[in-house]
Design a protein around this nucleic acid. Sequence first.
DNA 1: TCGCTACTATTGACTACGCAAGCAACTATA
DNA 2: TATAGTTGCTTGCGTAGTCAATAGTAGCGA
Lengths: 160, 160
Amino acid sequence: MMSQVLSEQALGVRAFAALLRAHASSTRRLNAQLSADHGLTISDYEVLLRLSRAPERRMRRVDLAEEVLLTASGITRLLDGLERSGLVDRGSCDGDRRVVYAVLTEAGRDKLRTASATHLVQVDELFSERLDEEELERVAELLGKLGDGDGADTACAPDD
Amino acid sequence: MMSQVLSEQALGVRAFAALLRAHASSTRRLNAQLSADHGLTISDYEVLLRLSRAPERRMRRVDLAEEVLLTASGITRLLDGLERSGLVDRGSCDGDRRVVYAVLTEAGRDKLRTASATHLVQVDELFSERLDEEELERVAELLGKLGDGDGADTACAPDD
DNA sequence: TCGCTACTATTGACTACGCAAGCAACTATA
DNA sequence: TATAGTTGCTTGCGTAGTCAATAGTAGCGA
């Protein structure tokens, strides 16, 4: 009776295994490239990117955390690093003194621009190497359904 | 001219972003469940699983590392934990004294069996909740192409 | 047999997170 | 206003994983 259940489960379980492998393999490669070329992790990049498209290039830390799927403490530490590198600044919020904005600096914008130039090419190389256009579209769509609830905009290039 | 390049890249880049979100969201949830219910991480589970299906329920550490996409040192530390918990044992290899087998113990088999009972259900719940059968098959296939080269057998249930 | 290179495994130092706990500031309720 | 509950952020501590360096073993060619 267990094996009955198991065979029904095989599909989801197989999909998960494939997800684990695809993620490990692609992030290892892209993270290595991004950090060698620019000293950034993928999460760093994602944060800079979100900030660059936010109004006034700033966001509350909670919101940022939610968008890049980190916890509150994760975002604090990540931003510590970006602040030390001068890519992000802190800004206070009139009207609610609990919140501390993360604000993209000029240096941060520059960094994002130069990092994008190589990173986006590398991402696309990796994926186009293995899937054709139709497949890429489909996999993005299906993975979107597996993401956390609100399928936020997931485009990955800075606006300008 | 940059924007030209960017629009061509959008597909792979979007797929990658979706992969990151889908992975973070599903592993966080499943890891939490697996560790709450059984004190195992997903990697622990994967290792126990591979061992359970290997001849004589044992594998060289290098091979294990490659299968679960960890580095050599990563496997050493992971196995340290499983050894401390008595789920895995060390075995030496006549003929090549460099290699140390990781051997699944009886306790390890039991653990894997009981963990599977809940874990597989949870994995499947998560995925079936969001994708139908045809979609699951398709996403597993596409993700398979993104995995590291040799698309090893990725089934996720113990044999017995 | 001696060295040379390749491979397996481990260790130390480090990073990137997560969780739980805590503080400070806001909101609501009375 | 007091009091209670909630939210935003930070901090201490623990864990999982990486990389670089090391040691032991294997196997080869001179």
